[in-house]
Write a protein that binds this DNA or RNA. Structure first.
Lengths: 124, 124
DNA sequence: TTGACATATTCCCATATAGGAATATAGTTC
DNA sequence: GAACTATATTCCTATATGGGAATATGTCAA
C-alpha cells in the first residue's frame, strides 16, 4: 500500500514544506494567486497545484472576484495538529520531565539488575 | 519529483497516522517493541518499520537492554510542529479574528466596487 | 552448541505523488 | 467575437512509499 494521499488530512497536506510556506504567505490575509506567485517566486502552475491540495483538505478557502481567485487560510483545520503536538509539550517545556524519565529508566534498570522474583517475568 | 522521504523531517514522519499512534503509545514512558505490539495489536514487522522511521528522524530514542529494545519518545523534535501550528492559533482561539477577516474582505470588496483611482492597480 | 525469544531486514508491488512543460478554461474589456 | 488576463488542468516520469510474507540477526539460557 502506498503512502496515504496528501489530501487525506491536514497532517499529510502540511508535510510538504512548500505547502507550509504557502500557508505562511496567506497567514496575513486574503491574497490572489498571483500575489502568492509574486511573493514566493515559484511557477504559477506549482502554486495552483499546491493550493488545490490545500483547498481539498480545507486548509484554505477560495472565493472568486472577477478573474481573480482570492485565497485565505482556514486556520481551524490546523487545530488538530496543534492539539496533538501539544500533548507532548511537557517534553520540551519542563526540565522535570527529563528527570522523571531518567528516574523511570534507572528504576527499570535496577529491577533488571536485581529482579524481584515475585513480580518479574509477568508482562501480559 | 516524488514526495519527500518520510524521514526528511518530523512533519513528514508524523503524516502517517500509525506513526502518531506509536508515539502516543510511547508517550507514557519507555516501552519494549513487544509492548507496543501487544498494545496496538499490529504485526511486529510493521511496528519495527515505523519505529525505524521515527528513530531516523529522531522522534524516538532506542536503547538495548538484553534482548529487548526499549524505545522512548524524544518529544523535543515535535516542538517545531507545535510552534508552526501555534502561529495560526488566533484562527481558532479568537472570535475577533473572524471579524477582522470579514472586515478586511468587505473592505477589499468595497475597493473593487468603488476603486480609488489614485491607489488602484498598483500591486507590485 | 542448540534452542528460544526479541527485533530488524529483505523482497515484491500497487499507488500517489511533485515538478516541468504545454495547454485549457474562465472572466473582462473593447 | 477577438485579445488579454488570471488560474487550473493534463501529460509524463522518476521516486518513495507501506503492507504482507518470509527470513535474517542478535542475545540469553541450558
Amino acid at each position: 500500500m502506498p503512502r496515504a494521499p496528501t489530501t487525506l488530512d491536514p497532517f499529510n497536506a502540511i508535510a510538504e514544506p512548500r505547502r507550509r510556506r504557502v500557508l505562511d504567505t496567506l497567514a496575513h490575509g486574503e491574497m490572489p494567486v498571483n500575489g502568492i506567485v509574486h511573493t514566493l517566486g515559484w511557477p504559477q502552475p506549482m502554486i495552483s497545484k499546491h493550493l488545490g491540495v490545500l483547498k481539498e483538505v480545507g486548509l484554505v478557502i477560495m472565493r472568486r472576484q472577477g478573474r481573480q481567485c482570492l485565497y485565505r487560510v482556514n486556520g481551524g483545520q490546523l487545530k488538530p495538529i496543534y492539539d496533538w503536538a501539544k500533548t507532548f509539550e511537557r517534553f520540551w517545556t519542563h526540565q522535570l520531565e527529563r528527570i522523571r524519565q531518567r528516574a523511570e529508566r534507572t528504576a527499570r534498570q535496577r529491577a533488571v539488575d536485581q529482579p524481584d522474583p515475585k513480580i518479574s517475568h509477568k508482562e501480559k
